[in-house]
Design a protein around this nucleic acid. Structure first.
Lengths: 215, 215
DNA sequence: TTCATTTGTCTACAGTCGTAGACATCGATA
DNA sequence: TATCGATGTCTACGACTGTAGACAAATGAA
């Protein structure tokens, strides 16, 4: 029986978790090919071989790390899309999440940076489409167009890429408020849709002229 | 004197061009780390060492290949942004360019797939910001906000990533017309801007809150 | 204490990478 | 024909990679 408060040097679960955490960081930063097993292991305070002992192979580790990342609530802040002003909440969440020293949206980062590896890309697509269905369900239901949700996802991914991966100076040197102000009407347009017009009370001030053109 | 129509086995310029072309393909498909010099050389019908002879190193080859790709007119179809309906032209160009069997927007692909390598990311940022200035100059000038241009660029990049790299089914299975219809008002919003309001007095009350949140 | 199980490390191997240096071959000119 | 520069290949090296197998140490139960 385990009554001691100091188990062994480490419990199996703790080590697993430490490796997964290190793997998430490393994959997000360097991609599937770029992140080395030795480097991941060092980040978790273990040896490279132990990683393979726990996850079978690097591929297995990648699948688990990506799944864990996607499942975490940080991505897309899905709890916000039910608010009264979903577009603004969406924009604010996206901007704050991609702030300079903020934790990256690991899911997208891992996915994008690993897309060059064929096997990793397959795993990634499965994960993102599964997650995509979950988090964007409300959005799809409202607009009735999965393409709309997909394009919203594209904007989120692109913004994150340009701000966190590429590091465009125009995005890094400007205040959050400016970015939110630009992004909000975009999300509004995406959330409300323009093909079907179920709700008229939704205020879209800057959108009137945009809508007139879109037939 | 060179009167013969058959020069040598190959002229220096031809070989250079062949290597660059092969490198663009390889980098777009596999990223900086993923593409090997031997593989690139084989695609050009030469040996790996000749690549280094022409470009000094893999890093030098990457810089030139990325510059050549960015300079090619395919990316962002910049000639269209001067049309009467720039937003719609922009959306149409983006959708048609990212069609299933279309030539990928190599510039972005190379950039994104190579972002894991630190050195490659630096080169890429330089290139994209240089190109960004050129192609988006009109857009920036009109809206007066470089952030707006950067976010437009984000949307373009994200859309391309999701359609060509990730291969989201919602984007691949839908008709071009639907995608254009969704994208057009977004570009319109980005092109027209709302920070400086030249034409309409519609103000934004949602902005205050956004600004208050983003400290 | 004794012993088996868990937790972890060390060494090594086969492969790939970028690339340095020596060597080969062709084309035009003298 | 003889020669020289341009064009290109061959071999090899050191540094990496993922991971297989043998070994070590700590833990809990007997």
């Amino acid at each position: 029986m385990r009554k001691s408060s100091i188990p062994r040097r480490r419990s199996s679960a703790e080590t697993r978790e430490a490796i997964l955490l290190s793997a998430r960081k490393a994959f997000a930063q360097s991609g599937y090919d770029g992140a080395g097993v030795r480097e991941i292991a060092e980040g978790a305070g273990v040896t490279a071989m132990l990683v393979n002992r726990y996850f079978g192979s690097k591929e297995g580790l990648f699948a688990e790390a990506l799944a864990a990342t996607m499942a975490s609530p940080i991505i897309l802040a899905p709890q916000n899309i039910e608010l009264a002003k979903p577009a603004e909440a969406f924009a604010t969440a996206l901007v704050s999440i991609t702030e300079k020293n903020a934790t990256p949206l690991e899911g997208f980062l891992i996915l994008l940076r690993s897309a060059s590896s064929t096997r990793a890309a397959e795993i990634g697509r499965e994960q993102i489409e599964k997650h995509h269905q979950k988090t964007m369900a409300a959005l799809v239901k409202r607009s009735g167009a999965p393409q709309r949700a997909a394009i919203a996802l594209s904007l989120v991914a692109g913004f994150q890429v340009m701000r966190q991966m590429v590091g465009l100076t125009a995005l890094n040197n400007s205040s959050d408020a400016v970015l939110v102000r630009i992004l909000t009407p975009l999300f509004e347009e995406l959330l409300n849709g323009n093909g079907d017009e179920p709700k008229s009370a939704t205020r879209k001030q800057g959108l009137a002229m945009a809508k007139s053109r879109a037939k």
